[in-house]
């Protein structure tokens, strides 16, 4: 994959306005075709995303999760490793966090929550590391291996939800102890912690890629592994480390989902956040400084999409259509002259 293909230069003036108007308009039109009344539902979209504290908390949490999965795609992408396994790494992280929380069990404490986060990041990194190892050692195509590992991760999660700690009613594990949580903030619950994690990862990703020597190596490896080998940039090591960092970010997203949102390992815990993260990373053309921008856009579509879907009696999966159509059109309306 040519990394530069995905990093479209921002076009200027009227072109960019026309492009945005076209993409947004076309996406809305697709939603309209699928049965969402786009003319009357703006108020409920507002209420469902930012308009009241409860939905604002949900939107911010989802935004944090998507920021993390977008980082999980962005960092390896910049190093030339197409990590399509954010989904599986997220599930691996969520499983790791749940296993720690339930193994230590009652009464639980803040310290357990911290251990959960660390273990989730390690689990995500290791899960990505499998694909990285297969790629570096055996030359196994990372597009296929990361996708395969997603399905393996789902099965591992299914093993824990149905055999080890099954809940009596729903397809999920029993809940983790109440005390295994970060200090709560009133109405917002533990959402601020999710946001804090996302902001830290955002800052670190930006600083690492744009301001450090190692970040330069990452970009060089992504643009031309051969040249970076000649310059002594150790492309293999650079790529491996960036894949591990990406996996850790996705794992952290899994921990956030467990500790802040679900409080148990749910069978379809990810709800495609891993793939939406990739879409968000592409929306911002792989620029780490813009991470929260892509994340807030797709968090609003995901969360607001749920509300709209409920109002218009459409399945919430309609938001996945909106996300994918939006990014596909953005890729398709890129000026071809600019890239050559």
């Amino acid at each position: 994959m040519a990394v530069s293909d995905l990093m479209t230069r921002p076009s200027r003036g009227l072109t960019v306005v026309l492009r945005v108007v076209f993409v947004v308009g076309a996406t809305l039109f697709v939603l309209f075709l699928l049965g969402i009344n786009i003319f009357t539902s703006f108020p409920s979209f507002w209420r469902g995303t930012l308009g009241n504290p409860y939905s604002l908390a949900i939107t911010l949490t989802v935004m944090a999760v998507i920021t993390l999965t977008a980082a999980a795609a962005l960092i390896p992408f910049r190093a030339g490793f197409v990590n399509l396994g954010g989904e599986g790494q997220l599930v691996a992280g969520a499983t790791g966090a749940t296993v720690v929380a339930l193994t230590i069990g009652e009464p639980g404490s803040v310290w357990v929550a911290i251990v959960c986060v660390v273990v989730a990041m390690v689990a995500g990194a290791l899960w990505a590391g499998i694909a990285s190892f297969l790629y570096e050692r055996f030359g196994a195509n990372e597009v296929i291996s990361t996708l395969m590992l997603n399905f393996v991760a789902f099965t591992v999660a299914e093993y824990f939800t149905s055999t080890v700690w099954p809940d009596k009613v729903a397809p999920q594990t029993i809940s983790i102890p109440d005390a295994t949580n970060f200090p709560l903030f009133g109405k917002f619950g533990s959402t601020p912690w999710a946001v804090l994690f996302a902001v830290i990862v955002w800052g670190l990703a930006w600083w690492l890629i744009q301001r450090t020597n190692f970040g330069f190596r990452i970009k060089a490896t992504g643009e031309s592994p051969m040249a970076s080998l000649r310059f002594g940039y150790a492309p293999v090591r650079t790529r491996v480390i960036s894949v591990f960092l990406g996996g850790a970010a996705a794992g952290l997203a899994g921990a956030v989902l467990i500790l802040v949102v679900n409080r148990a390992l749910v069978l379809d815990i990810s709800q495609s956040y891993g793939y939406v993260g990739i879409a968000a990373a592409l929306l911002i053309a792989l620029r780490p400084a813009l991470l929260p921008l892509g994340a807030i856009a797709f968090a609003m579509i995901s969360v607001g999409g749920n509300t709209l879907a409920a109002v218009s009696k459409v399945s919430p999966t309609v938001s996945l259509v909106a996300v994918s159509v939006c990014v596909l059109l953005l890729l398709a309306t890129r000026s071809r002259r600019g890239s050559s």
Partner: peptide, 29 residues
């Protein structure tokens, strides 16, 4: 997408999967 607009094929394909999943799931419901 692939041939007329010449978009990057791997990510286009992946996003198409997401699109197809969302669309068929929505229509199914």
């Amino acid at each position: 997408l692939y041939l007329w607009r010449q978009t990057e094929q791997i990510v286009t394909g992946l996003l198409f999967n997401l699109f197809a999943f969302g669309l068929t799931a929505t229509l199914f419901t």
